[in-house]
Design a binder for these strands. Structure first.
Lengths: 351, 351
DNA sequence: GCGTAGGATTGAACCGATTCAAGAAAGCAA
DNA sequence: TTGCTTTCTTGAATCGGTTCAATCCTACGC
């Protein structure tokens, strides 16, 4: 690095033109006479000028041309969790197309998250509200930048958000299995409330704090009741979306005389873990047990058998979210997006 | 958004203090009398001041407090490729700890990449040079920011880089299998040169443009020759690290009368694909065929059987890279890091 | 030869903060 | 009361560009 970094003003002086002209050479080359332009560029190169500093420029312009994606999770979450990954890949794609930068901001501990959000150089945020959504929304609000919440577990209508139709999607999933002839189900739920794992009853579902999980449960019930299956007869086990809790749940669900012939998993992650457990247990999927997931992550299509699931239109979600943030045209109402049933090899009629 | 956004100056005026004092209230609260401080904060809140604007602040400070990770790939690469993911997760961790932001910059097409690199608001770059490394290095150089290249396929000593000991690691991998008693090997290589897939001979290896792949091949050879296995007798198939090319390679390797009893895969990704193919083909791993990977991505530990591999110390690599970039203390020489053999279930003595 | 249209260039204001030398007020000792 | 600290606060300079109104040329028409 040259010691005293070269500024635009230095180049201008060395080239014998005004700073205004020098600036034009870089940001509006068409307006300056070719002769002069070449001379200035020449001088710049000779001096080793690195081009207009972004900070100076953006101070003037006020736009960073980047958006931040935030979550109340360690940063590694973005690369580990299949859902987050699928979503980010989609967001990336959209950003790529529009030449927008992407910054990852997150932290598990509140203080750091606060600071990270405050200091992220972005024009707006996409919030991944899987957990601790309100905290995130609140922090982001203070920043006074446009933002849109994804997968928000909160019914506050003043928060711009895009979510999928959890209730409707879950209903379709359950109906799919019921129509195949299944009558004995087991549900593996994503988080309903903080710090709880284990079997849950109807009352717990109804007062769940995470609406995503709650709505999916309600959707399952709704569809199954149309087939004469009472909600009391559908065991639900709350997991925290990880291997140990999912396996504990399966252990319980399959410890009864008449175990389920179909598993309703509230996430593909859970579904994939379930399939592994079932096979290790000597049960074949889908012959012995059918499994349906929720989310539609790419991994679901790459295993054998393929995972039947309710697919979120990640590309569409990403497109809308990025657009909303960039144009500061956050939806005034909560937007709802449909999920679609993708049938692969993990579901079939019961034996 | 309030129309005329509120500036620090506005708050200062409204509170009846100088701008300097107002600034201190936010950035050095201890220096201003409590009474005044509270009054200013109060006024700020009343006016809806969002806190010191970052752009103004950073213009002054010159530091963005963020680093960029760049690759010549579509942005989604960061979330799809296991190696990139593992590395980024590690980088995330380090950044998290030091309160540094993380920006992803990339593009497959050169023009966009150029622009993205030029306009990324970061203090420095970590370059993922899996492919098109020189291009990336060149572009980044122009930006005149500190950077360090990872997995660089180039021997130019003027480029600060951190790489793993590909030759030594590969030798350990091959030795591990040879010591188990294997004598018939097949190699599934990562890219050796652009736009080529298929079996390769000794000459192609020696003039490969990607030194990572070349060195791994050399390492395999070196170790195997110590066991009396000639390089001519080790078939090598070049893939592009994806499913179709890996399967084509396996198809070929196993189409001979005496197929290999051990597969040397130059990436875990390839190894995992290989294991799937072998099983689908009715061959059990490790009983019929042993497979060893390279990289040590987390997925390798989560499958059944676990993948034996040469693990890169991702955390260490990330730590050094981030440190180098942040402190503008890029290694003057090319740093080399050792990889370690992690033995899991995918390797065993031959039948 | 004069007036003028037109484009190229200049110079200064401005973006929104931080910083620091210097000034003001308050406290305390003599 | 004067002198000397100590503690805050002020005002102006600064960071590195962009922008725009004003000015300067040049060439062209009459």
């Amino acid at each position: 690095m040259a010691k005293g970094t070269i500024r635009l003003a230095d180049v201008a002086k060395a080239a014998g033109v005004s700073q205004g002209t020098a600036s034009n050479v870089f940001s509006r080359p068409d307006v300056v006479r070719e002769e002069v332009r070449e001379h200035v560029l020449e001088t710049a190169k000779r001096l080793g000028y690195a081009g207009p500093s972004l900070t100076g420029r953006l101070l003037r312009a006020g736009k960073v041309n980047a958006i931040g994606v935030a979550a109340v999770e360690p940063l590694a979450y973005f690369f580990d969790d299949p859902w987050a990954r699928a979503l980010l890949a989609a967001v990336s794609q959209v950003c790529d197309a529009s030449g927008t930068g992407l910054a990852l901001v997150s932290a598990k501990d509140r203080q750091k998250l606060d600071w990270n959000i405050k200091s992220a150089l972005v024009d707006g945020f996409i919030l991944l509200c899987v957990e601790g959504g309100e905290k995130l929304v609140q922090l982001t609000r203070e920043r006074q930048l446009p933002f849109v919440a994804l997968a928000l577990n909160d019914d506050d209508p003043s928060i711009a958000s895009i979510s999928v139709d959890n209730l409707g999607g879950a209903a379709i999933a359950a109906r799919h299995l019921a129509e195949l002839g299944h009558r004995r189900f087991g549900v593996l739920a994503t988080e309903l409330s903080d710090d709880h794992v284990g079997p849950v009853g109807i009352a717990e579902i109804e007062r769940a704090i995470y609406s995503t999980s709650r709505d999916r449960a309600l959707g399952y019930w709704q569809a199954l009741e149309a087939f004469g299956i009472r909600r009391e007869d559908v065991p639900i086990y709350e997991t925290i979306n990880d291997k140990p809790s999912v396996e504990a749940g399966l252990e319980l669900l399959f410890s009864v005389p008449e175990p389920p012939t179909a598993i309703l998993a509230m996430s593909d992650n859970i579904a994939l873990l379930a399939i592994n457990w079932l096979r290790a247990r000597g049960l074949s999927v889908p012959q012995d047990v059918s499994v349906i997931g929720f989310d539609g992550v790419p991994e679901g299509g790459m295993v054998e058998p393929g995972l039947t699931t309710m697919a979120q239109p990640f590309a569409e979600i990403a497109r809308r979210a990025v657009k909303a943030v960039l144009e500061d045209a956050v939806p005034t109402e909560r937007e709802m997006i449909e999920v679609t049933l993708v049938v692969r090899g993990s579901t079939a009629p019961p034996r």
